[in-house]
Design a protein around this nucleic acid. Structure first.
Length: 638
RNA sequence: GGCGGUGUAGCUCAGCUGGUUAGAGCAGUGGAAUCAUAAUCCAUGUGUCGGGGGUUCGAAUCCCUCCACCGCUACCA
């Protein structure tokens, strides 16, 4: 039997789950469910990464033990997976005995093979990032990632000879185009591997970090993140514990990850496996980020919407549907209420929900609620049958390509075909003509069978709603348990009674359900650590310039605004500044100021402002920023 | 700076190894129908396929170049 072993990353237990986690896990769930539908033997794994200093610190802050803390976090994640209808087969935690055993044993083997050595390491260490930095990495004496304190530290650590595997890894990636997907990420890794590859530090001294798995060959150290976390994939497969399971599941079919942990999965993990003498996973699929546009999340109404809130307002299935429908796996996408509502109203409520509703109503009204027994291959049903077969073949191609968007579109095309079919056949007209009774029955049967097909194909994406469809056409059992043979056209026997239910996707008034306020702008939600700092690139987007004030006057009808004409060197600009309560207009003329030159123009009190003057303020005091010397107008600030 | 990617209708995007009048969904406009969650169906686009050059009988699709944006990476800050 075909096996399909899919994993999500194990999520780090130092923060609450968010959209990024939800997306990865939902896509993995949808893929797992499709493979089950196709009759494959599936192992779907997710879990938690629970060791490390950040967990230790978080636990201390809450006055609890690390184990208590991670237990709570694991509960929070499990609760979300339950809410989202995730059908994982295993939930692994790195604090479990089965995993500690594998890590210990694997380390000992690699050590015995001479692939691990110890060495002194000296550098600047950030407690927060749990990382060393070289002198030149530092930015203003702070760590380059979060700008936090660093301390000089020299310590012995253990290293894995990762560098020895560089050529082998390149060869493997080149020889296996499916290994890293999408191709842009593959190129990235190949680019990364053109530089010399270093060795991998795999330890932390217990004196500094106690919360981890001790190195078997040196009890003064614990295992550092990668040689711990990544091994979860083989632990869960049964490595070193269940030979039968292991040989069945390993190597994994797919590690689904976010693009933020590409290197660890595409470089560290393969070399680790190689050193252990284990085969590599077939595919590492890196998806993109959801950009959450707070502006478009209802902020204009003063009440922003958190993506996960939509689960409560519109239901889990609509949320799952949106995730796999809107984002092409591998690319970034923007999460907005507008697009969510457009999908919900247009595709789910109008096209699909209404199709189900009108079909069931017609079955009740025109044929007494009992689905007729009709030859599924009746020529009148050809449009539906052919379209259903097309849907099936499209999905069969899209599934191995991880193309969730194509899967959804294939299903929607069947929905639209059915709506078109109804218009063409006009069952309401047939119902008025006794002589056309059999035509009518054929039509009703065709709709019933199409709904059955839809329920089956939608089940992996929308488990609850698809089951509701399944029930309404009188099918028994759980649609989630259906397998490939059920997908053959004509599986509806006929003769069973329809059971009308409430509309599947009622229109929702979001204004009432939106409550939480949010001040966030666009925020990236991957699995990367959130950071309040900005990158240098982001800073560079600002075009700050020195300007000289030519004229200044008060803006009519505004007591805080001044209208300034400024000399930017290459051009003159007009801008509006809210400094009238601190500066007389005349006193500014001739002064050098600093402005944001590439700010989008705005009209304030009817006056256009082509930029923004910079000033600092505190406790009601205000001071203009100005260069220390008589620089020319237009000088760039950086 | 190096490597890679993207740029196709108002919006979101399909268009594989070059080949009939460049497509889908949404939005817009006009119409039909009434079983249905005012839900559906039909019709409707003069799109410089980012600009320029080239290869070819023929290019959105291949090559070169330029521009814009994005990612990785280096360096500067």
């Amino acid at each position: 039997m075909n096996t399909f072993f899919i994993t999500t990353p194990i999520y780090y237990a130092n923060g609450e789950p968010h959209l990024g986690h939800a997306y990865t896990t939902t896509v993995a769930d949808v893929l797992a469910r499709y493979h089950r539908l196709m009759g494959h033997d599936v192992l779907f794994l997710t879990g938690m990464d629970e060791h490390g200093q950040k967990v230790e610190l978080a636990a201390r802050e809450r006055n609890t033990s690390p184990q208590d803390f991670v237990d709570q976090m694991a509960l929070a994640f499990r609760a979300l997976w339950e809410r989202l209808g995730i059908s994982h087969d295993d939930f692994i935690r790195t604090t479990e005995g089965r995993h500690q055993h594998v890590v210990t044993e694997a380390l000992q083997r690699v050590y015995d093979a001479g692939e691990i050595y110890s060495s002194d390491y000296e550098g600047w260490y950030s407690v927060y990032e749990e990382q060393f930095f070289t002198e030149k990495d530092l930015v203003d004496g702070k760590d380059p990632i979060g700008g936090r304190e660093v301390v000089q530290l020299s310590e012995k650590n253990y290293f894995f000879k990762m560098s020895a595997y560089q050529e082998w890894l390149i060869d493997h990636i080149v020889a296996h185009p499916e290994f890293i997907q999408p191709v842009t990420r593959r190129n990235e890794i190949l680019g990364f591997l053109r530089q010399p590859l270093g060795d991998l530090c795999i330890s932390r001294p217990k004196a500094r970090v106690a919360w981890g798995i001790p190195l078997p060959f040196d009890q003064d150290y614990v295992t550092y993140v990668w040689f711990d976390a990544l091994l979860n994939y083989v632990t869960a497969a049964g490595y070193l514990s269940n030979e039968k399971a292991y040989s069945r599941w390993w190597p994994a079919s797919c590690h689904l990850i976010g693009k933020d942990i590409l290197t660890t999965h595409c470089v560290y993990w393969p070399t680790m496996l190689k050193a252990m003498g284990l085969p590599l996973p077939e595919t590492i699929m890196a998806h993109g980020y959801w950009l959450v546009d707070a502006e478009k999340m209802g902020k204009s109404r003063g009440n922003a919407v958190e993506p996960l809130d939509l689960v409560e307002s519109h239901g889990v299935d609509a949320f799952r549907y949106y995730l796999v429908r809107e984002m092409t796996v591998g690319q970034d996408s923007t999460f907005t209420v507008e697009s969510f509502q457009a999908r919900y109203n247009g595709e789910l409520a109008n096209d699909l929900g209404n199709l189900v509703n009108r079909s069931i109503v017609m079955a009740e009204r025109y044929v007494g609620g009992r689905l007729p027994v009709v030859d599924p291959l009746h020529p009148d049903l050809d449009p539906l049958r052919l379209r259903a077969e097309e849907t099936a073949s499209t999905i069969a191609q899209a599934l191995p390509a991880y193309d969730t968007v194509a899967i959804v579109e294939a299903i929607l095309s069947l929905v639209r075909e059915a709506n078109r079919f109804i218009e063409a056949k006009e069952p309401w007209a047939l119902a008025k003509d006794e002589t056309r009774r059999s035509d009518l029955e054929t039509v009703i049967y065709g709709l019933g069978e199409t709904l059955r097909q839809l329920a089956l194909w939608l089940a992996p994406i929308m488990p609850e709603k698809s089951h509701a469809i399944w029930n309404q056409i009188g099918c028994e059992g759980d649609v989630a348990n259906a397998r490939k043979d059920a997908l053959v056209w004509g599986g509806l026997p006929g003769g069973q009674s329809v059971r009308k239910m409430d509309p599947l996707f009622p229109k929702v008034d979001l204004e009432e359900s939106a409550t939480e306020e949010s001040t966030e702008q666009t925020e990236e939600q991957g699995m990367a650590e959130e950071s309040t700092t900005i990158s240098f690139d982001e800073f560079q987007k600002l075009d700050l310039r020195v300007a000289i004030v030519k004229t200044a006057e008060k803006v009519e009808g505004a007591d805080r605004l001044l209208k300034l004409q400024i000399d930017l060197g290459s051009e003159e600009r007009q801008l509006v500044a809210g400094v009238a309560q601190h500066y007389e207009a005349e006193s500014l003329v001739g002064r050098r100021i600093v402005v944001v030159a590439n700010l989008e123009p705005a009209t304030i009190r009817g006056v256009e402002s082509q930029g923004m003057l910079l000033a600092a303020s505190a406790d009601g005091q205000l001071g203009l920023l100005a260069p220390d010397s008589d620089l020319p107008a237009g000088a760039r600030v950086s």
